[in-house]
Design a protein around this nucleic acid. Sequence first.
DNA 1: GAGTTCCTTTAACAATTGTTAAATTGTCAT
DNA 2: ATGACAATTTAACAATTGTTAAAGGAACTC
Lengths: 187, 187
Amino acid sequence: MDELFKYFDEFYSLNGESREAIEGICSEIQVSKNELLQPFGHTCKTIYYIKSGIARIFYYKDGVDITEYFAFENNIVARVESLFTGKPSKKAIQILEESQIVAIQVPGLFRLYDRFPQIERLFRLIFEAGYVETVNRMESLQFHSAEERYLDLLKKPDIIQRIPLKHIASYLGITQVSLSRIRSTLK
Amino acid sequence: MDELFKYFDEFYSLNGESREAIEGICSEIQVSKNELLQPFGHTCKTIYYIKSGIARIFYYKDGVDITEYFAFENNIVARVESLFTGKPSKKAIQILEESQIVAIQVPGLFRLYDRFPQIERLFRLIFEAGYVETVNRMESLQFHSAEERYLDLLKKPDIIQRIPLKHIASYLGITQVSLSRIRSTLK
DNA sequence: GAGTTCCTTTAACAATTGTTAAATTGTCAT
DNA sequence: ATGACAATTTAACAATTGTTAAAGGAACTC
């Protein structure tokens, strides 16, 4: 659990009492490759902290598997469009590499917001950072070419080195074939 | 100011003390068409509530004017990628229709977060809703065709009826010419 | 209301990306 | 190692979107 609180410290440092409260709604799990951490069609009731490994959020559009997000070690992953609306999500979370994960119960967390303003602030700051990341990604999808987006991605070695190209393609908003073509012209 | 608190009530109802505190960091302004509410290159130090009128967030990519977001009456607008990072924004906010606006000072707001957990909660909820909206928009840009995105937009009559097509085009991530072509095939 | 400017459409052509299918390469279990 | 399966590349063609330029319409100023 130490890693989790170190991660929290990057945003906001909790006092001892708040930490204990958080520990009460957390559990550690190990998940193996290709397993679904969260299935389709269910409301997001758990936030995950990836201690080690990789997860992705994905869904199907017209039968095609589309990756919306990758989460590597030392990061939080959650389907926010369900978490913040309470509605069922059409997205699932899948593990891409055997992972050590801390599961944080959402109903418990929301109750802690009332008792510990520190915890509410911490998660506010965490999700604000996620919001900024999403705005930047939206911007790149709005008016950058597929090649520009791929070149940007090369700056994130984790994704390039550890993720199959088929998932990278859909993450970039293009087909595998198109990505393969772009890669070949860059050689 | 009544409208503002009515808007807040949709997310979280503040008590009297919190309302007074908010009023202390707000001022009402009238802004005329085409004026810049916020210039390029400055850090976001103000959040705006649109009482009446329309605003848009935009920026230039390779010299081309791109609209990232429209805000109509009874909505909040802010450049979150600057607001939440403290970094200067390369985006500006422009008024598209003469507007009545409530300007909320950001440094003051952040100070109120410490004194009034209610206020921190309110804005947490407001920006969580914005986050969800952005995730949904990203999804539509990632794997929907331009025509699908335009058809989706037709469901938002405010945008179609009150915004010039050139701004709608860049908002959809396409050129004016392409949008015009899509419109003509739909007739 | 004449003239100017801006917005939108249309057309022709270029570039990019999608689609389908086949070939190649890589991975994994036995 | 062998076979089976998954991932990636390549190729040919189709569809979509971008680019440039010109023309028509709408809105605004004086």
